[in-house]
């Protein structure tokens, strides 16, 4: 069949608006997830077993189930539990933040664990008190080491965000599928949508590798 990509131009503003929606809730979920993930990673190193177990179960559960079911659960079950009406946008941000927090906490935890014990030895040999050790030696290194992982979480969340189309949120994916149905030209529209995702996902992925290579040089002294 004859393909015709020219008609896509008519839909450029609709598609861009979809992309804008995607970027909005992804950014919000990322910021909330970053804070929540850091708190969770501290919980997971807690010596209080109740805090430790609850946070571990939380993280494992969100990492061990499809994001799609998490999304449906927040969308359909949370309002029943809380007896409130949540807007689509709020529900989506809640669901993605909860997920992003779980994967972010793992990045922080891995970074904390990767710091060699000889760094602790050096701190003791220099007579650094525990608070100084944590704040000035361990924390900065943990953040530096977590950066590549945190960035690849950004890519993951960006990709997972296409799921929100399944609950009727008008993101890029949803808009694309809608147009494809209306004009009966799925090949052109869906290819274009894929390319838009690619145009953002690819540079992000490359940035991760770049930053990773640069940071490894600094951290492995």
């Amino acid at each position: 069949m004859a393909l015709d990509f020219a008609f896509l131009l008519d839909f450029r503003w609709v598609l861009l608006k979809g992309l804008w929606t995607t970027l909005q809730f992804v950014t919000l979920a990322l910021v909330i997830g970053l804070v929540w993930g850091f708190v969770l990673s501290l919980f997971r190193t807690s010596s209080n077993w109740v805090i430790y177990s609850l946070s571990t179960i939380y993280v494992e559960f969100f990492r061990g189930t499809p994001v799609l079911i998490q999304l449906f659960w927040i969308f359909f079950c949370l309002p029943l539990f809380l007896d409130v009406n949540l807007s689509d946008f709020t529900s989506v941000v809640i669901a993605l933040s909860l997920y992003s927090g779980a994967i972010t906490s793992e990045s922080f935890r891995a970074a904390l664990k990767s710091i060699e014990s000889s760094q602790h030895d050096a701190c003791i040999a220099l007579g650094l008190p525990p608070t100084v050790r944590t704040l000035f030696v361990i924390l900065p290194q943990a953040v530096l080491r977590a950066i590549p992982n945190l960035l690849s979480n950004v890519v993951s969340l960006f990709k997972e965000s296409a799921l929100v189309s399944a609950v009727g949120m008008a993101d890029l994916m949803y808009v694309g599928q809608n147009i494809a149905n209306n004009v009966a030209r799925p090949v052109e529209i869906l290819t274009a949508v894929a390319l838009i995702y690619f145009a953002i996902g690819f540079p992000l992925t490359r940035a991760v590798s770049f930053v990773e290579a640069r940071l490894l040089k600094v951290v492995k002294a």
Partner: peptide, 23 residues
Amino acid sequence: IEFFRCTPALIQLVWFFFCVPIL
């Protein structure tokens, strides 16, 4: 590799479902 790594799995799936039969 880059295409499959850098785009959402959902668009890959939907693309296969709708576009492969036509193409």
